[in-house]
Write a protein that binds this DNA or RNA. Sequence first.
DNA 1: ATATAAATTGCAAGTGTCTTCAAATGGAGG
DNA 2: CCTCCATTTGAAGACACTTGCAATTTATAT
Lengths: 159, 159
Amino acid sequence: MKSPKETSLAKTGLRTTHPRLLILEVLEKSQTRHMGAEEIYDSLREANEEVGLATVYRVLTQFEQNGLVLKHRFGEDSKAYYELNNEQHHDHMVCVECGDVYEFVDEEIERRQDLVAGSLGFVLHDHSLHLYGVCSGMQETGECSKKKRKTETIYQVEK
Amino acid sequence: MKSPKETSLAKTGLRTTHPRLLILEVLEKSQTRHMGAEEIYDSLREANEEVGLATVYRVLTQFEQNGLVLKHRFGEDSKAYYELNNEQHHDHMVCVECGDVYEFVDEEIERRQDLVAGSLGFVLHDHSLHLYGVCSGMQETGECSKKKRKTETIYQVEK
DNA sequence: ATATAAATTGCAAGTGTCTTCAAATGGAGG
DNA sequence: CCTCCATTTGAAGACACTTGCAATTTATAT
């Protein structure tokens, strides 16, 4: 009997190892849903799980190559952030004050991107759209609203 | 009598120094219009201009802070690219094969971005939209079409 | 269960990109 | 042309990874 995590690893051809299961677990439990490699490493050490930092980096790279996670780089932040690739495709809106990340989809933007790529003679593989601004919490109270949100939901713009 | 480059430096309050003028010159003459710091440094050394690498980085940062240049990070490429901030706002389409960068604007995408940010309660400061794909040259002949283009033009999608 | 081969891990050392430091230099106003 | 403080420089450091390799763990065949 395999756990869901073991199943998803099996599908990629990656062996079911302790570090890999732990890292999937950390990403699942993550509140922010966007974690850096070092953050994941720290989170594991706090839980008294001995996983090397090099392994965290290696595993995240493998996960990305196998479509288990998505990797992002936001603005000037020189480090990469990872999220589980469970949900539908979405773009990101980042608060430049508190670092909080919101997810959204806009079908019209998606459509126009295809159009632009086609017009330029490109075969489109991928895209990244990042909006940077100040979230409502920071505008109003100077307090981040991140802590209040238990789950991140993808904001869908009405057509 | 001041040169245009001296004028733009004066407006920022930055002193008119040799390295700063040289770096502006390199960016102006750049064919690709998107250069990394090290590339700029190499370009200067080839021209027998002795400018330290640290200076190139420092000057580019100052230029960015003063709105003279724009800084971009494309995809997995861990280094930053700089372009002169002369033209109108535009987004970027990057060929994942040859690294060539095309510029474009789509008013509809711009509009939808504002809408999304507003809906999420954000005050929008900035955004970055990068499309990644394979350019026509690489698709057809496996040869990059970069060399043929003398100047980069901003592709404007018809409304 | 046990042996075996191959994948994986952890540590330490190495990279690439960029930043900082302390000392030397050089524009710009007087 | 002199003085002052911004600016430059090469070297060392910081940061975010990445790699080499011996030791360990996992999947598979017995």
